Computed example of a mutant assay.
Amino acid sequence: MKLDPAFIWTAFVKLLSAVPTTLFITVVSVAAGFLLGTAIALFRIYKVPVLGPLSAGYVTFIRGTPMLVHLLLIYYGLPAVIDGVSAAFGWSFRSVSIPYVVFALIAFTITASAYLSEVVRSGLLSVSSGQLEAAYSVGMTTPQAIRRIVFPQAFAASIPNLSNSFIGMLHGSTLAFTVSVVEINAKAQIVASTNWKYFEAYIAAAVIFWGLTVLIERLAGVLERKINIYNRGGVA
């Protein structure tokens, strides 16, 4: 096999058009997963009746099953539910009108929520209980204390794990090609299929993913330094 460096550059340029789709899937999934994961973490920490045990079971199941399984379950199962409900109520809406990327977003959000709930939970537990007691002593309610005292400190402590989760979801977004979403991985296959130069196309894809990963690491580092400056009482 002879390597074609010129095609690596050609593939690299063509793959750039798929970067926005990959980033969109990653950012939306992580953002929605973070919100859902935060709720799950709070349910478990404060042992909310019914919701606490359900949240623990949810996290155990999602973390114990592959990301690809989540995607396929949503892709094949959700349309059946939607079409069944629509038929029962006499609605004209059908699942075929839903873009494929929506199924990927739902599945990846579910996956991210389980993993991010553990990140958030560990961050919240890292904050001393004395912080809550001090907040109560000045008249704060539990929601106020969590929002204004506990959560900012937990977020600062969780930044390294959050960035790792973000990178993991970025790489996991390559699974979206299984449901016909054209992200970087799928685009590499399309580009390579024109002349069977798959090796060169995947080299270009690897370089793009590596660059995005380095960028995320740098941004997380900058954010962590700024937060630490504030925590020490300085000014950014």
Rank of each mutant, 00 (worst) to 15 (best):
I159A: 10
E200Y: 02
G168F: 05
P152A: 11
S163Q: 08
T174G: 15
A192Y: 04
H171E: 01
P160I: 12
S158G: 05
A156T: 03
F199P: 14
S193G: 06
Q189C: 02
F199Y: 15
N164C: 07
A186N: 10
A154Y: 09
I190M: 13
G172C: 07
T178I: 15
N164R: 05
E183T: 11
V191M: 04
S193R: 10
N195G: 02
L170M: 14
T194L: 05
Y202C: 05
F199E: 13
A204K: 15
A157E: 02
F177I: 12
E200P: 01
E200H: 04
Y198F: 06
F166R: 06
S180T: 13
W196L: 14
A176T: 04
V182K: 14
A157V: 01
T178L: 15
Q153D: 05
A176R: 00
N185S: 10
H171C: 01
L175M: 12
E183D: 11
S180K: 05
V191D: 03
M169K: 09
N164Y: 06
T194F: 02
V191H: 07
S193W: 09
P160A: 13
A192P: 06
A188C: 10
I184S: 01
P160T: 13
H171Y: 02
I203D: 00
G172Q: 08
S163V: 11
V181A: 12
N185H: 09
V179L: 10
M169D: 04
K187L: 02
A157L: 03
G168K: 02
S163R: 04
K187N: 01
S180Q: 06
S163P: 13
I167T: 05
G168E: 02
L170D: 08
W196G: 07
P160S: 11
N164F: 07
V179W: 00
V182W: 01
P160G: 08
H171K: 14
A154L: 08
I190R: 10
I203N: 00
V181G: 09
G172S: 09
E183N: 10
Q153K: 12
V179G: 05
G172F: 04
I190N: 09
V191E: 10
M169I: 15
F155Q: 02
A186P: 09
E183P: 02
A186Y: 15
T174L: 05
N185D: 02
K197V: 00
I203S: 00
Q153M: 07
T178S: 15
F155I: 07
N185K: 04
E183H: 04
T178D: 10
N195D: 12
Y202E: 03
A188W: 13
L170S: 09
A201Q: 08
P160D: 11
A201F: 08
S165P: 00
N161E: 06
E200N: 06
N195P: 11
T178N: 14
M169F: 11
P160R: 14
A204Q: 14
P152T: 13
A186F: 15
T178R: 11
W196Q: 15
L175C: 02
N161M: 03
A154I: 06
K197R: 15
F177Y: 15
H171L: 09
V182G: 09
N161F: 00
S173G: 04
Q153E: 08
P160Q: 13
G168H: 03
V179N: 05
I159Q: 12
A176P: 01
